[in-house]
Write a protein that binds this DNA or RNA. Structure first.
Length: 861
RNA sequence: GGGCGUGUAGCUCAGUUGGUUAGAGCACUGCCUUCACACGGCAGGAGUCGGGGGUUCGAGUCCCUUCACGCCCA
């Protein structure tokens, strides 16, 4: 058969990606229409990937899921707002820059405009980080992230994501800084943002405060130490168990459960701490656990979060000793008044907690105030999720945004906002509810870091030269973005910086989540003119990983609730993770990640997308190259069957689809299209793919085999026209139904015979297939025919002859209804099976007796 | 300790409100060089649906209980 013009003789998948990617860009297939009204728009709040290294196969997986939905909605006629951003600010980037270039930021240094980084990768192990100014450090961060961003873009384009690249943003870019600072100032004006001097979880290595969402418990070895406190009434000792004896100098009280009869008589009395001799009260609080240790504990400021609660609720003094450097204060504090106590403190002054513990234990053992030996245990301790040493609690001034952690009304309102979302899958909402319900403080957003969005305020400086944090100077919104370390507040001049009566800039930046919680506002260009924003907000869907519900999803909800009084989206679509073959989560730290580029090259993009799209929403999925092989097979099959079907040529203008089996095939396809459509509407791309794929293989294996002879013209003209028209109609619909999953091969074959891109074509509907045949009628017409065909094939396989081998007689035992269906397709069956004659016998089930034609002995005949 | 999820063939997974004999692909085995496709086609074997109990005419599906694994939180 000669291929018509436009159809290659040897269709191939090789190289189709690069030419189509370029074509899509030129044709603007995925360009957002800024004149569309909100009801015509489908808006996606795409996750901006963290730019700190390389993309791995997990990115391919989840971004493909969203892309299939975007393509579906576009084909349904929506104008799809599908932006992309790079999350490039934050600690992850700072670390990468430090490790890659061998520098560290020292904000006290002046800018050096001739500076260049000592290394670009391969920093020697013995290199001591070169200190650089903050502006130089930020420049390096921008340089390195820019390189990474180019690599990300290349991969995402190669992956065929139908994002509108003209909507690209970065979380450190001007637009993001402007939006982030504007939102903060609005929070501040409404009282949702506030500063507070309070105990804060603090990473002493990174030297920054850490939010509740960023910490995690890790089981670490520790030990119980039994310490004797001395009753002031001289009636003996009170013995406690503690894992942190080094904090003894920070002890402010003892605490036991109010119902505990062992300690009830002691409430209201005082004891003296061992070693330091500080007099502290014995108090009652319900959080004290009678079963834990000796049933009574010491409260230190601050050993853990419970200490903070006790400190607050029992109105205790603050006796913090560990500073920002993670070391004990150099001078003995004023509350230690005895000479012996001050002498003891001198031993731990300036030490880190671990060394201090060792020293305190030695001293206690020497004084006899520690009973017995330390008893090793394993217990959970709070860590910054990126940190290596336990968090300390340090009293500092920080900025917070109210998130319901200290306000039940707000908490309830945020839970209610969660109810306004449709969650996919629905059980993911529990994680949100649990997280919101379990909050125990507001959201700490200030970070003592460098590569981030500056907190856009200054403070007055009093006549003594001390910052007056109560006098907050703010910029106007039209001045944003600003950097308070270089910009000057209105009414001041630059030479008034840091001088009495002048001003001082806030040195901190915002937590990266404080900016990424505004992705809908950043992507939608929220601001003075909301021409774009009003067309896209609230967005239709937030796709994201289930592990960041407590951070990204929740934070975005908080900002939108405060600013807009609405959820930021209608749907939340949570994707699962990629697991390695041992069912462990793929992550960089485990070293089991797989990079995607070679897979895209080896199997083709469509094949990798096929594997991705077969991972069901929210379900963790094993990395499986086998699925990619199947995806490649599928793409090849579509290529080949398209060539075959189109090779029959166009049916005549008056062709009618009259053959029963043709109409039944289209009826089955109509049901599949309906199913795929409703699956997609519920974000279940995997089901849409599965249904379409199931139809497609049946179509190729059975239907095409059955009708190909008729389509060639072996029967009458009407039959040929019917087959050709039905084949083309089905091919068109199937190509479009596969388009969201296999964007390359579908567009390749579509362009052989249709104008424009398949991605600009309409999503198939049951109506256009025009049969009006129900699913059960289709099945009744098809299944007996498929069954007979299968039995004929089996007979040939068992006889070890070719499927082309001729059959003399076929006797079909079948119930009447099945017989009617088989007779309707009898000519096709005889062609497909090379069957000379067929007779029917009434029977319960379909059973075929096959008599093969004798095979000639001589090979030459 | 609380919450959520998962457990179906050697592997990866479908199985919608309970309804014939539990499905698909991979892998494996056999056959077919066939005129769209050998980067192919046709066919085959293979499962006590994690265990136990219950509801029901009927349970992979609903209820209870238990085990294993994973995740989130404390």
């Amino acid at each position: 058969m000669n291929s018509p013009a436009g159809i290659p003789d040897k269709p191939s998948l090789d190289g189709i990606e690069s030419s189509l990617v370029a074509q899509w860009e030129t044709e603007g297939v995925y360009r957002f229409d800024r004149s569309a009204t909100r009801d015509q728009v489908f808006a996606i709040d795409t996750p901006p990937p963290t730019v700190s290294g390389s993309l791995h196969i997990g990115h391919v997986f989840s971004y493909t899921h969203t892309d299939t939905v975007a393509r579906f909605q576009r084909m349904r006629g929506k104008t799809v707002f599908y932006p992309i951003g790079w999350d490039d600010n934050g600690l992850a980037t700072e670390r990468r820059v430090q490790n890659f270039t061998g520098v560290r930021c020292d904000p006290s240094l002046p800018y050096d405009d001739g500076f260049s980084a000592p290394f670009h990768g391969d920093v020697p192990k013995d290199h001591r980080a070169t200190p650089v100014s903050r502006p130089n450090f930020v420049e390096l961060c921008r340089e390195i992230t820019h390189l990474d961003e180019q690599a990300f873009e290349e991969l995402f384009r190669r992956l065929g994501l139908s994002v509108d690249w003209s909507l690209l943003y970065t979380t450190i870019g001007d637009r993001a800084r402007r939006v982030s600072q504007r939102a903060f100032l609005r929070n501040l004006a409404r009282g949702e943002a506030y500063q507070q001097d309070a105990p804060t979880l603090y990473d002493i290595d990174e030297r920054t405060a850490v939010a509740q969402a960023e910490m995690e418990d890790r089981d670490v070895p520790g030990a119980y130490h039994q310490l004797a406190f001395h009753r002031v009434d001289g009636q003996g000792d009170l013995v406690i168990d503690t894992t942190r004896p080094e904090l003894l100098a920070s002890c402010v009280a003892m605490v036991a459960h109010p119902d505990d009869p062992r300690f009830q008589p002691l409430f209201g009395t005082t004891v003296r701490t061992p070693l330091f001799g500080v007099e502290v009260p014995v108090l009652a609080h319900h959080l004290a656990e009678p079963e834990k240790g000796t049933g009574i504990a010491m409260i230190c400021t601050f050993g853990d979060i419970t200490d903070v609660t006790w400190w607050r609720e029992l109105n205790l003094p603050s006796r913090a000793l560990i500073g920002f450097d993670g070391r004990f204060a150099a001078e003995a504090p004023e509350w230690i008044t005895t000479d012996a106590g001050r002498e003891a403190y001198a031993h731990i002054a300036g030490l880190a907690p671990k060394q201090a513990q060792k020293k305190v234990v030695e001293l206690l053992q020497a004084s006899g105030e520690m009973l017995g030996d330390a008893r090793p245990i394993s217990h959970p301790v709070k860590f910054y999720e990126r940190g290596t040493r336990p968090l300390e609690i340090v009293a500092t001034r920080q900025w917070y945004i109210r998130n319901g952690g200290r306000d039940n009304d707000l908490r309830d309102a945020l839970v209610e906002r969660g109810n306004e979302l449709t969650w996919h899958p629905s059980y993911m909402q529990h994680r949100y509810d649990n997280w919101v319900g379990g909050l125990n403080g507001d959201w700490l957003i200030s970070r003592q870091r460098y590569f981030g969005v500056p907190i856009p305020v200054w403070y007055g400086v009093d006549t003594d030269g001390n910052p007056d944090y109560a006098t907050v100077l703010v910029p106007r919104e039209d001045q944003l973005p600003i950097d308070p370390s270089t910009d000057v507040p209105e009414g001041y001049t630059a030479d008034q910086r840091n001088v009495p009566g002048g001003f001082i800039g806030d040195p901190d930046v915002m937590d990266t989540w404080a900016t990424s919680s505004l992705t809908p506002q950043i992507a939608g260009d929220w601001g003075d003119s909301n021409e774009l924003f009003d067309r896209v907000f609230p967005m239709d869907v937030r796709p994201q990983g289930h592990d960041i519900i407590r951070t990204w999803l929740f934070a975005t909800m908080v900002r939108s609730h405060h600013e807009h009084g609405t959820p930021p989206w209608r749907n939340a679509a949570l994707s699962g993770w990629i697991l390695d073959p041992d069912r462990k989560k793929m992550s960089k730290s485990k070293g089991n990640t797989v990079t995607p580029m070679h897979l895209l090259e080896q199997y083709g993009t469509d094949a990798v997308r096929y594997w991705s799209a077969s991972g069901r929403p929210g379900v963790d999925t094993a990395f499986d190259e086998g699925q990619m092989k199947i995806g490649r097979k599928l793409a090849l099959k579509l290529l080949n069957v398209s060539k075959f079907v189109l090779g029959f040529g166009e049916p005549s203008a008056d062709a009618t689809i009259s053959a029963s089996i043709d109409r039944a095939m289209l009826g089955r396809l109509a049901g599949v299209v309906d199913d795929a459509t409703s699956a997609f509407e519920g974000f279940d791309y995997a089901r849409a793919l599965e249904r379409t794929e199931g139809f497609f293989w049946w179509f190729c294996d059975d239907y095409v085999e059955l009708v190909k002879a008729r389509a060639y013209g072996t029967q009458d003209e009407a039959g040929a026209q019917s087959a050709r028209a039905a084949l083309r109609l089905a091919l068109s619909a199937v190509t479009r139904a596969f388009a969201p999953f296999l964007p390359f091969v579908t567009d390749e074959v579509w362009r052989w015979w249709q104008p424009g891109s398949v991605h600009a074509a309409a999503w198939p509907t049951a109506d256009e297939l025009g049969t009006g045949i129900s699913a059960s009628e289709s099945a009744a017409a098809i299944e007996p025919v498929s069954e007979v065909l299968a039995q004929v094939r089996r007979a040939k396989t068992e006889a070890k002859v070719s499927q082309r081998a001729a059959i003399d007689t076929l006797v079909v035992h079948a119930p009447d209804a099945a017989r009617t269906a088989v007779e309707a397709a009898l000519a096709d069956l005889r062609d497909a099976g090379s069957i000379a004659s067929v007779t029917f016998v009434t029977g319960e089930q379909i059973v075929c007796e096959v008599t093969l034609a004798p095979v000639a002995d001589t090979p030459a005949s």
